[in-house]
């Protein structure tokens, strides 16, 4: 870490290789696979490179990078939503909007026999705030307090969002859970 802070690119590359899995899980979990997720993943590390001088090491590096990743992913989702809102009339805005969003990224056509693709597609159909909790808490395995800190919400909010998200995921993944397949 100290070498990377002194501008050693080889040391920084080691950090990238060590933590790219954690960043990928967050970014792809939020945005789905593809070029945009890759770009956002790169941006996470570029921003970290820029802020190396300010990183004091108080937070675990994985937590620090995941926080950047979740914030950039949420920004990208907001950008997508603004783009879609220009072209799609949404009459269902507000608190009573359904928890599950319509598939707009081709996930409706996922091969249901592919468990991994089905799980990821189901997670991406959750609303962003619920999706973020599932990605950080269930997929990445952060504890409730860390997840709350990353999302800047109270731990109780994390738990209630997680509960609602899991309820929403049950019917979407019922086949895979019952089959217990791989």
């Amino acid at each position: 870490m100290r070498q990377a802070r002194d501008g050693d690119e080889r040391a920084f590359r080691e950090i990238v290789e060590t933590y790219e899995g954690a960043v990928a899980a967050t970014v792809i979990g939020m945005l789905g696979p593809g070029g945009t997720a890759d770009d956002v993943g790169q941006e996470v590390f570029v921003r970290f490179w820029r802020s190396l001088g300010n990183f004091r090491g108080d937070a675990a590096l994985k937590t620090y990078l995941t926080r950047i990743a979740i914030n950039l992913s949420l920004n990208e989702l907001k950008r997508r939503k603004r783009f879609l809102d220009r072209f799609i009339s949404r009459d269902r805005e507000g608190d009573d909007a359904p928890l599950i969003e319509p598939a707009t990224d081709g996930t409706a056509t996922v091969d249901r026999r592919d468990t991994r693709a089905s799980v990821q597609a189901a997670v991406r159909r959750l609303k962003p705030e619920h999706r973020a909790v599932v990605v950080l808490r269930m997929i990445e395995g952060h504890d409730t307090n860390t997840t709350a800190e990353m999302l800047d919400v109270r731990p109780g909010t994390v738990m209630s969002r997680l509960s609602r998200a899991m309820q929403a995921l049950k019917p979407l993944l019922a086949d895979h859970v019952e089959k217990g397949d791989d």
């Binding site: 590359r13 790219e20 792809i28 890759d38 993943g41 468990t115 799980v119 269930m138 997929i139």
Partner: peptide
């Protein structure tokens, strides 16, 4: 299921 199948990786050459 989420723990086992939710993770993804970037394509090769990400670093």
């Amino acid at each position: 299921l989420l723990r086992d199948k939710g993770r993804s990786n970037f394509g090769p050459g990400f670093a």
